[in-house]
Design a binder for these strands. Structure first.
Lengths: 116, 116
DNA sequence: CAGGATCCTTTCCGATACTG
DNA sequence: CAGTATCGGAAAGGATCCTG
């Protein structure tokens, strides 16, 4: 799902470590807190909360708490969040992917030089 | 010079803290190590070296050492570096700038809500 | 002049445990 | 379930001093 956005090599980043992936995960609909943790490799609740709070503050994400027990909270993208996701996927990830071969080759060449 | 790329609020980032600014500074020609430090608010040599090394390794920057005493080292953008700079300025910074008002308003509204 | 070496602070992030 | 609280390690970034 994140083939084009692997943070291992991507030089262009958005928000913190999880912001981009959260945008993608929420791209096709609302998700609950626990549902989000799965595609995010079981990121700890603390960190996920921090990322979601920041995104909510920036107007990218909307938090909807359904009353009752057990609690049920859903996160979804705002209109700005959707635009941010499009920009991230179509522009940033696309550009990262397109330049990746050049960067990798440059790194290999550099490493060859310094180790020599 | 960095009006559209202020890292205070920019959600989209490139490389480390100084990468974007270095790209811009080298945009209109080669610069020496010390020359680079000025527009970068006297970033310490250690950090600047780290950033430049990473950019050199990624094939964004070319390092040219002119022999003699005192030493003279010039940094310039590679072709990939120029393309990266264009992408950064025209696409990333432009997008940051265009969404900035919305983000700031969202933040203000959020802060008003939580402090209330 | 162009950095390398050291030390230190800050920030990010993960692990674990607990709660309404 | 959806978090919060606390702790600890790792990494980023900066201050200061030193060197070819």
């Amino acid at each position: 799902m994140f083939q084009n956005c692997q943070d291992v090599v991507a030089p262009v980043r958005i928000g913190d470590k999880w912001t981009g992936k959260i945008l993608v995960c929420l791209g096709d609909g609302a998700r609950r807190f626990s549902e989000l943790r799965v595609p995010l490799h079981m990121v700890t609740p603390k960190v996920l909360t921090e990322s979601l709070r920041a995104m909510e503050r920036d107007g990218l994400v909307r938090r909807t708490a359904h009353p009752g027990v057990p609690p049920r909270v859903e996160y979804s993208l705002t209109e700005l969040g959707h635009r941010m996701r499009e920009f991230f996927m179509d522009t940033v990830c696309a550009w990262n992917a397109s330049t990746l071969p050049e960067v990798l080759e440059a790194r290999a060449a550099y490493d060859r030089r310094v180790s020599a």
